[in-house]
Design a protein around this nucleic acid. Structure first.
Length: 163
DNA sequence: GCCAACGTTGGC
DNA sequence: GCCAACGTTGGC
């Protein structure tokens, strides 16, 4: 009773051409809503599991170099993604009813931009990361769970690169 | 409820 | 640009 859930860790994918970690850094309070997720598995995580205080790695996909570029923190837990209701929004979904929203989002605040991004190529060499969802073949999930061990290993790599 | 067709993601 | 891996759609 009264036992708080342990802090969890996530990896959020984004295409830097549409939203990059530099955009996050320039946002008011370096905070943004993570809108536009249109996949049910990712939606379930955003709605039900991602909590305030959870750690988030930011990953740049479909770019060169592919890399983990920094970290953020969840500052608001799952709430309806209003961009689904906006006809003019690229992520508009007419099937999402405001009374029973289909899609959810969270807010995150930038923690740090890594001085050196961690390229996917290098992550693939690290034994401790061999089970990362990100590195699995055909992995398309845009909101990915990761283990505390993976979280720590990433931070160690980022720290080592800084030296 | 099955499953073929189609669309999308995203590394390579 | 290619294409494997998924997810979604829709006829039956």
């Amino acid at each position: 009773m009264g036992k708080t859930n342990p802090r969890k860790f996530w990896l959020f994918k984004t295409e830097p051409t549409s939203f990059s970690i530099d955009d996050l850094a320039r946002a008011p309070k370096q905070t943004t809503c993570w809108d536009g997720v249109r996949n049910y598995q990712a939606r379930n995580l955003l709605r039900d599991t991602v909590q305030v205080g959870d750690g988030v790695l930011i990953y740049h996909s479909s770019t060169d170099p592919l890399a983990i570029v920094g970290t953020a923190q969840v500052v608001k837990a799952g709430y309806p993604d209003h961009t689904a209701f906006d006809k003019n929004d690229h992520h508009y979904d007419p099937k999402s009813d405001p009374a029973v929203p289909t899609w959810y989002m969270v807010d995150i605040r930038l923690t740090q931009i890594f001085p050196q991004p961690l390229p996917r190529e290098e992550l693939q060499e690290v034994t401790a990361l061999s089970s990362m969802v990100l590195l699995k073949r055909g992995s398309r999930l845009s909101i990915q769970p990761m283990t505390p061990a993976e979280w720590q290993a990433i931070h160690k790599l980022a720290g080592d690169r800084e030296k």
